[in-house]
Design a protein around this nucleic acid. Structure first.
Length: 503
RNA sequence: GCGGGCAUAGUGUAGUCUGGUUAUCACAUAGGCUUGCCAAGCCUAUAACCCGGGUUCAAAUCCCGGUGCCCGCACCA
């Protein structure tokens, strides 16, 4: 489906809409409506069942969204997000000030005000690296973080976290102490992060407040034992750096074992890359031929990332592959920075007495982006029908419940809907319009099942108390005793779970 | 941030160039009749010119500013 059509449909059905719509909206902010909120919650639940489910030693925490200034200074966000930006008035290209000044001030621009930098640029007659013009703008301080006064004195500053990962790094020492004091230790966070994006765009793809699901695995790079045989033969759609540099856009399929044997990647990395891929393919059910694992080059990835593959899915609405998740091997960068910043020793003592600053493997996932991607991939036209073919455990509503005839069958249908809800099956009662119209509404909302109460339900005989159960995708119907419905439906509403490792 | 395009009921739209009756149509929504297992039909109702200023006897229409959206560039430690 095209972008405009998809967004209109999601808005019309109340999945999501712009924040503060009556004031004209606010760039980069969106609200989820009833169906969208449920869908998002199910995506989070599926993620929680899968990634923290990889090991008994992986745990979900719920940390604060506000970080004191010392944290973002240590993490590097303060420094790296406040570099002044200079734009060329001639060709409109934008550069970081230290790029323009690198010849005359190799030590960087820290400590200079934007005005002072501007004076250097003018005095030295510096030129635009792109077009050679001297028409360079006054530097503009640019910070992607939302910062504000914290506390009553107004002297302390704090920031909305620009990524959830930092919360996990801060939690590591406490998690070590309250846990088994063993590696690997996984800390998962599902929550909001905030970035003052320059150009928010494409609805859920670049928002200023967005939800991330991230698992940080702290481990000993010399000893991370995993059942690699369980993934060795899995074939992955890979687009590695040499292939990309040769101009290829499409992935090539290679077994995971080969990435280790001749691909130069460690087992622990490939193992988690496979499980990330399986989550996208088997849990969110993106077609395998639309997924690719894109390796980031030295130039593209952040300097502290030693290995990085993005999980990308081809989206028709956005005309291209979009990053929906990633696997980052960050080394010991994060704990090292926070060790320095806090003055605490964050290394741990291993069995045998050796000290180690754990390394971090980060499995990251954009929740909002995947909500959009699920709609892109699974919501489509089938003749006259518009059907949202979500896996049942992701569907916002599990079942529509209808009386075939409004007057006669209403009471039975209403109480059946209540029974299903009480049993944990999200059910929606609907009596408006013809029966076909109600099926259509539920197809569009993604409900995998519809239940209809009819004359045979209420008449005495062998079919008394049975209702028709209609399948969204096949439109097939069967008669099921009403009391058995909840158990029957619930079986398909559990998200898949991986095999666990760990102690 | 820069450049280009766009903004009319819940959704999609006609009308804007060339200012002038009660702002068009379809779908959706609500109520009624009818029907009774896949968006049927008939009747009725609800519902819109993004915001602010200007020009004019008169502005959805022309001008200025703002906001938002799309595309490209840039940005995305």
């Amino acid at each position: 489906m095209k972008y405009d059509e998809l967004f209109a449909l999601l808005r019309r059905r109340g999945f999501l809409w712009p924040t503060a719509e009556i004031y004209g909206g606010a760039q980069g902010l969106y609200d989820y409506g009833p169906l969208g909120a449920l869908l998002k919650r199910r995506v989070e639940a599926a993620w929680n069942a899968w990634f923290p489910g990889l090991s008994r030693d992986y745990h979900v925490i719920d940390p604060a969204e506000i970080l004191p200034e010392a944290v973002v200074r240590a993490s590097g966000h303060l420094e790296n997000f406040t570099d002044p930006e200079i734009t060329c008035e001639n060709c409109h290209a934008a550069f970081r000030a230290d790029t323009i000044l690198e010849k005359v001030r190799p030590e960087g621009v820290d400590g200079l005000t934007p005005a002072q930098i501007g004076e250097v640029v003018t005095a030295r007659g510096l030129r635009c690296p792109n077009c050679g013009s001297t028409a360079l703008s006054v530097p503009r301080a640019f910070n992607m973080m939302f910062g504000f006064e914290f506390g009553v004195t107004g002297r302390e500053r704090a920031y909305l976290r620009p990524e959830t990962a930092q919360s996990s790094y801060l939690a590591f020492p406490r998690m070590w102490d309250v846990g088994r004091r063993a590696l690997p230790l996984g800390i998962a966070v599902v929550g909001k992060a905030y970035r003052n994006e320059i150009a928010p765009r494409q609805v859920l793809f670049r928002m200023r407040a967005f939800t991330q699901a991230e698992l940080q695995i702290f481990f000993d790079p010399a000893r991370f034992e995993l059942p690699f045989d369980a993934v060795r033969d899995e074939r992955l759609p890979l687009l590695r750096v040499p292939r990309r540099e040769a101009g290829e856009e499409s992935p090539e399929w290679l077994p995971a074992g080969e990435l280790v044997a001749s691909g130069g990647l460690p087992e622990f990395y490939v193992y988690h890359l496979v499980h990330s891929y399986r989550f996208f393919r088997d849990v969110l059910r993106y077609p395998a031929e639309r997924i690719r694992l894109l390796e980031k080059s030295d130039r593209e990835r952040a300097f502290y990332n030693r290995i990085q593959f993005d999980v990308e899915v081809f989206l028709e609405s956005l005309s291209g592959y979009k990053e929906l998740g990633a696997v980052h091997y960050r080394g010991d960068y994060d704990l090292s920075r926070h060790g320095d910043g806090s003055g605490k020793d964050l290394s741990v003592t291993l069995p045998g007495g050796a000290k180690l600053l754990p390394h971090v493997l980060e499995l990251t996932f954009g929740v909002d982006r995947n909500v959009w991607a699920l709609a892109d991939v699974h919501l489509g036209r089938d003749g006259d029908r518009t059907v949202f073919r979500l896996p049942p455990y992701l569907a916002p509503v599990a079942a529509g419940v209808f009386p075939l005839m409004e007057k006669e069958h209403r009471d039975f249908a209403l109480s059946l809907a209540d029974d299903l809800a009480a049993a944990g099956v999200e059910a929606r009662y609907d009596e408006a319009g013809a029966i076909g119209r109600r099926y259509a509404r539920m197809d569009e909302a993604g409900a995998p099942f519809c239940v209809t109460v009819d004359g045979r339900t209420l008449a005495p005989g062998p079919e008394a108390g049975t209702v028709t159960l209609r399948d969204r995708d096949s439109k097939a119907q069967e008669r099921v005793p009403a009391p058995e419905l909840a158990a029957r439906l619930r079986a398909s509403l559990e998200p898949p779970h991986p095999r666990r490792t760990g102690g």
